[in-house]
């Protein structure tokens, strides 16, 4: 293969070998970034925990758009009911991404896009009903800047007219129902000059009885106009989505 331009090919091959050789190091960084002790205490305090590879934290290898990085979390491999899962990015200025509390009948999996400021490990701490914490990790490479750039909404004048509009879809899956929704909201981080933080902070899915099926806290690290998915284990008839932002605006629609 080492013909002409092939110098470049050979070099990139050498690069690949190096990358393979250092991948354990990357893995180690994922679990032991310099921020790990700090962020862990921030979210789970001094509780004992263990890393658990059955918690899948899915991220693209590179953040093509640092303002919209898709994150998929799936803790169903644990085969145990959970109380909550907390997701954060070690090197983000706003580390917290979301806290998800699925009730009985809801699968411990969720996906949404978030912003990254630089390459970072992403953690998902899952608390089992026993109180025990298990931690899954992922890593995303990024050029960065996602938290300190103005949202696209702020570049337009008409975002107010679509504020809180919810689009939604419901899909039959082998495991039950998949809900996918998009809420129009600038999700301003507060880290951009002259734009105060303005973001959706609470999401609930409720039954007609008022019973809460899903409870989720969102941080301003979640991307603007986020598309969120979650899954129920059985068909969930008549449910309502309710959201509230940090200005007290409430948004609601049937799913």
């Amino acid at each position: 293969m080492c013909k002409r331009k092939s110098w470049a090919a050979c070099w990139s091959r050498a690069g690949l070998v190096v990358a393979l050789a250092i991948s354990p190091l990357v893995a180690a960084q994922t679990e032991d970034s310099v921020m790990w002790d700090y962020t862990r205490k921030m979210f789970i305090g001094d509780a004992t925990y263990s890393f658990d590879e059955r918690i899948r934290v899915e991220l693209p290898s590179f953040a093509e758009d640092s303002m919209q990085v898709p994150l998929g979390v799936d803790a169903s491999g644990l085969n145990e009911p959970i109380q909550q899962m907390i997701a954060w990015a070690d090197y983000n200025p706003i580390q917290h991404i979301f806290t998800y509390r699925p009730q009985a009948g809801v699968l411990p999996q969720v996906s949404l896009p978030f912003k990254v400021q630089q390459s970072t490990p992403v953690r998902v701490a899952v608390q089992l009903t026993s109180g025990e914490w298990r931690v899954g990790s992922g890593y995303v490479d990024a050029a960065g800047g996602g938290c300190t750039l103005p949202s696209e909404s702020r570049m337009q004048d008409d975002w107010v007219s679509s504020l809180g509009q919810i689009s939604a879809g419901r899909f039959s899956r082998a495991s039950g129902d998949r809900f996918k929704l998009q809420v129009m909201h600038p999700m301003d981080s507060g880290l951009v000059a002259n734009i105060p933080s303005f973001y959706l902070e609470e999401l609930q899915v409720r039954r007609p009885s008022g019973e809460v099926l899903i409870q989720m806290q969102l941080s301003p690290a979640v991307s603007e106009n986020p598309v969120i998915t979650f899954d129920t284990a059985t068909g969930a008839a008549d449910v309502t989505l309710w959201l509230r932002d940090n200005d007290g605006n409430e948004f609601e629609r049937a799913l």
Partner: peptide
């Protein structure tokens, strides 16, 4: 049409 999330599609 199947309701996949972005991270599922990427895989």
């Amino acid at each position: 049409a199947e309701g996949l999330s972005s991270s599922e599609v990427m895989r």
